[in-house]
Design a protein around this nucleic acid. Structure first.
Lengths: 242, 242
DNA sequence: GCTGGCCGGATTGTCGGACAATCATACGAT
DNA sequence: ATCGTATGATTGTCCGACAATCCGGCCAGC
């Protein structure tokens, strides 16, 4: 008869401190923008050394729960921005040998519905920023880096136009991977830039007219074109993203 | 005439150290499972104090790039697990006042295609674990916590069955939010548990037969039922998730 | 040969104290 | 009111230290 023992886990202090502070933030006892007590004060309150507090703060900082305004050393409570947390996610995916195909397949499933919802829910402000980004891609697409950046930015705008934060955040890791994916292809496919610009214009028009069906359709075609780009450039789809 | 200066940024040492180590991991110079040099050794190599190194390590640890095997103090390089990075994401969403509607809408868009792809790509092993989880929900659904957990686990299995890591990871934040979303509803809707169990059985059958269309359809119905649950429980969809 | 116990060295977690650089803020000068 | 300036607070980094624990190898015993 074997008695099962639970694994005893001695949680290090810095982790406990981090957990307690995180809980306070999530329960909104500490509100956004509010500044945290100084490290010395926290150390006094928790009854631990300042070094321990600092390690806890690093953990919270990289989780996005704390930030400091640029040029300031004061730590304030913050609502993690999407880009911040998405960076970890895309790093994780990169280490998991994600292939071009996986990114493409995810785009195929995720983006057309997003375009559809964006067409329905977009505000005038969304339309304005979409217009700006679309124009920006049309004008500055010779530099590879800028082209890639603006292409991703267009998707990001569509995501914001859905007014659904969950969808916006779900696509963020994809957009991080879109960069490397596009970068290796776009310069090998002469017509790629024109295709993307055209697709963006069509989508913009559809979203402007709040024609959800058309927006979805053009987005789907845009993504299909993306795949064709790989075939033209002769890049294997089961190749992992750098 | 005002000359624009770029903001000069003095990056603290612990951040530089973390960035350098992260780069080494992402470039695969440090491979998975490999153990990191000791803190003292790292401090010597970087020419900084051990405290500085430790702060950097906390950053990498919470980003999932380092981990220690349970019961061990040695830090090893790790490929971040999906659950780990998704926790930050769902925390972020919780702080951004995500509503039930947003979660539901995201489920609506994301899950049916996932079921479809899972039906096409599932392996025998996927089928086995789906069967286990489905059975587990059917048997242990009286405890609210277990029911919620097993419901999310079913989605997770479907995600794995797609054999697309990007899709699997994209839905992970959703599953974290599914917990709180289900928890407030399931006990107010008597038929909820039976409905979920039935939907899981149908999906399982469809995925077993590799009937993509049916899998998608049942999943869509499952998600629609989810929404009906809110109406029956009389919970406002624009209510933010606790 | 394998099992199990034992020991020394290595490593981590935590502590205390220290100091320069920078920031916040209030005060005073123009 | 705007601009320096002084003062205190805060952070980033460093040093040194120590207990607890883990790792790895050695050794006895079967």
């Amino acid at each position: 008869m074997s008695v099962a023992f639970d694994q005893i886990l001695l949680v290090p202090g810095y982790r406990k401190v981090a957990a307690i502070i995180a809980e306070r933030i999530l329960s909104r006892e500490l509100r956004e923008g509010e500044r945290l007590p100084s490290e010395t004060e926290l150390a006094r309150q928790f009854g631990v050394n300042r070094s321990t507090v600092r390690e806890a703060l690093r953990e919270l900082e990289s989780g996005g729960l704390l930030e400091r305004r640029p040029g300031s050393k004061l730590m304030t409570v913050s609502r993690p921005q999407h880009r911040a947390v998405a960076k970890d996610v895309s790093r994780a995916l990169a280490l998991h040998d994600v292939t071009f195909f996986e990114v493409w397949e995810a785009l195929t499933q995720l983006e057309p519905p997003m375009a559809e919802i964006a067409a329905r829910n977009r505000s005038q402000a969304d339309l304005d920023s979409l217009t700006v980004v679309c124009q920006r891609f049309a004008e500055q697409n010779t530099e590879t880096e800028k082209a890639v950046h603006h292409a991703a930015e267009f998707f990001r705008c569509v995501g914001r136009a859905t007014h659904n934060q969950v969808l916006g955040l779900a696509q963020e890791p994809l957009l991080h991977l879109l960069g490397p994916s596009l970068r290796v292809m776009i310069d090998k496919v002469p017509q790629a830039r024109a295709r993307i610009a055209a697709a963006q214009r069509r989508m913009l028009e559809a979203i402007a007219k709040q024609d959800a069906e058309a927006a979805r359709g053009w987005m789907a075609k845009h993504i299909r074109d993306f795949r064709k780009g790989y075939e033209v450039a002769d890049i294997a789809l089961d190749c992992r993203i750098a």
